[in-house]
Amino acid sequence: MTKLAESVRETADEYRQGANRPLGGYVVAMTAFAGLAGAAGAVAALRGTSGRRISPYDLILMTAGTHKLARLISKDAITSPLRMPFTRYRDSAGPAEVTEEVREDGELRHAIGELVSCPFCLAVWVATGFSIGFLFAPRFTRIAASALTAVAGADYLQLIYANLQQSAED
């Protein structure tokens, strides 16, 4: 076992090339994700809900809802207390959004910081949550996804309005 551990450590060090890459934290995050998704899949199979399909309409809701919720969690100023243990504030980044740096201390803390501050990374988790929601609580999930989709649409309309207003003033 010691030889295997040493081999993994050497390979990880070679991979990192001196950079601070929290590979151990990534392993914990991937294990948690796989465990949650696997458990949900097993429960769905036992309950007979694993054959449910997501309609094209629900997929559109889930797509827009995933975009909005991932962005809300990872970039919104109001959700910064959720990210605070894993990130540090850097600057404002557009309407109601902030830019943050990932905390470097601790592999798990660093890995979670990268996850919760990246809307692209977080979208995988959010979409999986919506998928599980559609299996077990489709009505509630549809309502939540609809609300998030409406907010995403409103955001785009606000940005379009602001751009048109600025163009008219110039």
Rank of each mutant, 00 (worst) to 15 (best):
Pro95Phe: 15
Glu100Pro: 10
Arg88Lys: 13
Val27Ile: 05
Met30Ile: 03
Val28Pro: 04
Ser80Ile: 05
Thr79Tyr: 09
Ser146Ile: 03
Pro119Ala: 07
Arg47Asp: 09
Pro85Thr: 07
Ala168Phe: 13
Thr141Pro: 08
Glu101Asp: 15
Glu97His: 13
Gly113Leu: 05
Arg88Pro: 09
Leu72Pro: 05
Ile73Thr: 05
Asn20Ala: 05
Gly51Phe: 14
Arg88Trp: 06
Val102Ser: 09
Glu114Ser: 04
Ile78Gln: 07
Glu6Asp: 13
Ser167Arg: 10
Ser80Cys: 03
Ala168Glu: 04
Gly65Tyr: 05
Leu157Cys: 12
Leu72His: 09
Asp58Lys: 14
Thr66Phe: 03
Gly25Thr: 01
Leu82Cys: 07
Ala93Met: 13
Pro22Glu: 00
Ala12Phe: 02
Glu101Ser: 15
Thr2Val: 11
Phe33Thr: 00
Leu157Pro: 05
Gly38Gln: 02
Ala147Cys: 14
Ala37Ile: 03
Thr141Lys: 03
Thr99Glu: 12
Phe140Asp: 01
Asn163Gly: 09
His67Ile: 04
Gly41Asn: 06
Asn20Asp: 08
Val8Cys: 00
Leu36Pro: 01
Glu14Val: 02
Gln165Asp: 15
Arg52Pro: 08
Asp58Ala: 15
Met84Gly: 08
Gly65Cys: 13
Arg9Asn: 09
Asp13Thr: 07
Asp155Thr: 14
Ala147Pro: 05
Phe134Trp: 04
Ala32Asn: 00
Asp58Val: 11
Ala12Pro: 00
Asp76Ala: 15
Thr99Tyr: 13
Ala162Tyr: 14
Leu69Ile: 15
Arg53Tyr: 11
Asp76Glu: 08
Ala64Asn: 11
Thr149Lys: 03
Thr141Gln: 07
Phe130Pro: 00
Val102Leu: 04
Ala45Ser: 13
Ala32Leu: 08
Met62Ser: 12
Ala144Glu: 07
Ile132Asn: 02
Arg88Gln: 11
Trp125Gly: 01
Pro81Ala: 05
Ala40Glu: 07
Asp170Met: 11
Pro85Arg: 06
Arg139Trp: 11
Ala147Asn: 06
Phe140Asn: 01
Ser7Thr: 09
Ile60Met: 12
Ser55Cys: 10
Gly94Lys: 10
Ala45Trp: 08
Leu46Gly: 15
Ala44Trp: 05
Leu4Trp: 03
Pro85Glu: 08
Tyr89Lys: 10
Leu82Met: 10
Ser50Arg: 08
Gly48Gln: 12
Gly94Ser: 12
Ser117Pro: 02
Gly153Ser: 10
Asp91Ile: 04
Ala145Trp: 05
Arg53Met: 13
Arg83Phe: 06
Ala150Ile: 15
Glu104Tyr: 01
Ile54Phe: 12
Ala145Gln: 02
Thr49Tyr: 09
Ala5Asp: 02
Thr128Lys: 00
Arg9His: 09
Gly65Asp: 08
Ser167Pro: 00
Ile73His: 01
Arg109Met: 08
Glu107Trp: 06
Glu97Pro: 03
Ala19Arg: 03
Ala42Phe: 08
Leu4Gly: 00
Gly133Pro: 03
Ala154Ile: 14
Ile132Trp: 02
